[in-house]
Design a protein around this nucleic acid. Structure first.
Lengths: 188, 188
DNA sequence: ATCATTTCTTAACTTAAGTGAACGATTTAT
DNA sequence: ATAAATCGTTCACTTAAGTTAAGAAATGAT
């Protein structure tokens, strides 16, 4: 699993053995069972998650209904809003599957940044890319109908449709589970 | 206008006179008339924009219809996707009002980063914050009905409803201009 | 100032999403 | 293994959004 992390990082910057060792000593690797809640609504937390294996999801509970807003699979990371805002979290993070995840926090990051400024460059680049990607997803969402969004998902993340329960997918698509069920029936 | 930029930056990091002068020599300040198109669909560009005064919007043309996805007003920045992807832009950027804008590009940024590493920290922090903000907006969008989204907008960016044409607001809310018109009638 | 274009609203109609409820199917807990 | 809870689908009904069209209002161009 370490290797998977290093390979990911080396898509952006090269790593010396020293740097790899520095990462290893941080002891960031954690394993969780399906259903484990990593972050609760209302909780203060400074933890960011990076998925090495498995699947996490973020969801709100609104009018006692779960509203899933995002799924994070292999090599995707979540830096929850509450980490930056330092306010209680508005949403939950939990494991859709058994998952292997790294957990880090700003203190660890700053420590690494000081020793190896390269990592700050890494984080800047990744943030910029995630922002562009997120903006793009948002644009696609705004400019598409639920049906188009579902077809899009089939194209771009077919794995999600397999590994994630329908009712979680539904709110991810901005609709009710019933509508998704109908939509699927309509398409076949 | 320079001052407005410095004040913004100094919300994140303090600036020495040296650093201010370095920024000034970059000559980033530009003034545009309402309606000016800064970026065309299909165009390659490495320019990022930061609004000091006025309002920019990003929009797609889909089936010969304009779909507005975002508005950028005072102290908001756009780093178009095509700058990072190095592919032709999928969308347009134009001025909703007469606007004063800084234009920068990765070369300028890297030059500054080398001289003043502090600016890379600045950019990382801003990216991280924008990402969190963008994710939050996306979440709100997904979990709200068009009506709720409109009411939200009234709350959070009432200025936009004044300064921006209805039909541009409509696609920003993910609906047609007719639906927005109806929705407004319904609410009063 | 006038004309042309664009924008906003309204209306009638169609289509799809929300809602509430029911019923197997599946999963989870004991 | 069995009961309980959750999940996915279907149905009938309601509500709202998409679509097409038309006309009034506002804006922009000459």
């Amino acid at each position: 699993m370490q290797n998977r992390l290093f390979e990911y990082i080396e898509k952006f910057v090269s790593l010396t053995n020293d740097e790899k060792r520095a990462i290893e000593t941080l002891n960031m690797f954690h394993e969780f069972k399906k259903g484990t809640v990593l972050l609760q609504e209302g909780q203060y937390s400074s933890d960011a998650y990076f998925v090495l294996n498995g699947c996490l999801r973020t969801y709100y509970i609104i009018d006692s209904e779960e509203k899933t807003t995002e799924f994070y699979t292999e090599l995707e990371g979540i830096s929850p809003k509450c980490v930056l805002s330092k306010e209680p979290s508005e949403y939950f993070v939990s494991c859709v599957e058994d998952s292997i995840v790294t957990i880090s926090n700003p203190d660890m990051e700053n420590e690494i940044f000081e020793k190896f400024p390269k990592f700050e460059t890494l984080c800047r680049i990744i943030s910029e890319q995630l922002l562009a990607k997120n903006q793009n997803s948002f644009d696609e969402f705004k400019t598409s109908s639920p049906e188009k969004r579902y077809l899009n998902l089939l194209q771009n993340r077919p794995d999600l449709i397999q590994r994630v329960p329908q009712h979680q997918l539904a709110s991810y698509l901005g609709i009710t589970p019933q509508s998704l069920s109908r939509l699927r029936a309509r398409l076949s």
